[in-house]
Each structure stands twice: as C-alpha cells, then as structure tokens.
Design a binder for these strands. Structure first.
Lengths: 113, 113
DNA sequence: CTATTATTCAACTATTTGGTTGAATAAAGT
DNA sequence: ACTTTATTCAACCAAATAGTTGAATAATAG
C-alpha cells in the first residue's frame, strides 16, 4: 500500500489530472468527453487517464467502443488517511469537515456501495 | 494556492521525502542528521530538502553553520483540505480520525501556535 | 464492405527529476 | 592561519514525464 502512495500523490500532482477527477465527481464520462474542454490532444488525455487508473484513482470500463471512466475512491481515501495520520495538521478544522459532510449529504449518491 | 498543490503533491510523491517528513515529526533536525540513515549522498538529500521547502512542507533556518529543518504544517494542511473537500471519500473512517486525535493528544505539542 | 467514431499505440521531442561526484562556500574549532 | 564540519553548487547522467503527430485497432452505423 505504501508504494501506491508514490503513484497516488504523483497522479494528484498534475493539475490536468486533478481537473479530470473533479469532472468525474459530477458523473462518469467517456474519454472523448473528458478530453473536450482541455487544450490538449486526445492521446495526452488518454495517457493522463492511464496514470489515474494505475494510481487507482479511477476505474475504466469499456462498453462497446466507449471507455467509461469513473472515480475509484479507495486511493484518494488512502492518501487522505496518510495525511491525516501524519498528524501535523492544525488543531483540526471542524468547519471544513462539517462542510464536507454536508456536501456528501447533498450529493446523496445512489451507488453508496 | 492551487498552483502550490502541484508542488505539494509532487513533493509528497517521493518516499524519501515522505520519510524525511516523518523523521521531522519527532524533532527538528540538521541536514547532515537527516541524511545519515539514507543510502544516498548528502547533496541528494539537500535537493530533497529544497523540494520540500519549495512546497512549503518544511522551513529551513540557518544557525551558524548548521541549517535546521522543521515541519511547516500549512502545506500539508492545504493538501488535507483539498482531498477532504474533494468529497469522494468512503463514508468517513471515524476510527482513524479518532486515532489521529488520540495521537495528537499524546504528542501534546508545546508549540500549538 | 466501407465509413465513422472512440481510443490507444508507437515513435519522437523537450523538460523535469533524482541521482552522482568534485569543487566551492561558510562557519567553527584549534 | 589551518583544519574540520556543514551545506550547497555545478556539471553531468539516466530515467521518467508530458506533450506531439500519425498510424493502428475496435466497434458501430450505413
């Protein structure tokens, strides 16, 4: 699990990839649709998606000729736990934590597996 | 602040640098002492420290010929908040959160600025 | 079968990264 | 002044990264 942290943090270090992850918060998307807003070739986005996939931050499932991308929360959670248990945070910002809870509730995701 | 996330996550992506940060949890250290346990040149460690410093994860203060390194919690906190507010975490692991609180209490840091 | 759409592969390039070594600088210690 | 200790600088190298373009593959549509 520790070696995965390299990949996870490395994947999160790129702003394009963070943007992609945030887009996927809204909904699952096909590769072409993900690429659309970016000023960058499709192949470049495809590579970013492979990086995200290798880091375990997204899952890719091919249905027909379309490859659907969706968030995989586990790696993000692992990074979260690492930082959290690192422990050198400010007294803990309960406000932002509450806000996070609120947002979770608002999203009210149907697939709460 | 967003552009700093690139540097922060990128800095956290290297295991040597994460190790250094964890060593600094114990106490502030001089560059040479930080380098000692690693199978790597002093210059390499010096570079890692510059990366950590640029990411705002540590502070370096020269006293005499020794450069002391200490954690700077702000950037770590920024990364924490980003992941937290990203919101795609599992229902929230309250156990690990409690453990984190407990550890904080145990450390009982005097400099709770 | 042919064309179109979706995605990736391959080859290439430029830049960054993580490491090395040896010299340079800075501050003490004797 | 000379030596030792602490740290960085400079030049270099190998490997990884982030991008490009053009061809290849895969699946659907006509």
């Amino acid at each position: 699990m520790a070696h995965k942290l390299n990949q996870i943090f490395s994947a999160l270090a790129d702003p394009t990839r963070r943007d992609i992850l945030m887009m996927l918060l809204e909904d699952d998307m096909a590769v072409t649709d993900i690429a659309e807003p970016f000023d960058m070739s499709l192949a470049a986005i495809s590579k970013h998606l492979i990086v995200l996939s290798n880091a375990g931050l997204i899952l890719q499932e091919r249905r027909g000729r379309v490859k659907w991308c969706k968030l995989d929360t586990e790696s993000m959670h692992a990074a979260f736990i690492w930082i959290q248990s690192f422990g050198q945070l400010d007294p803990i910002n309960f406000d932002s934590f509450e806000e996070f809870l609120k947002k979770e509730k608002l999203l009210n995701k149907p697939e709460t597996t």
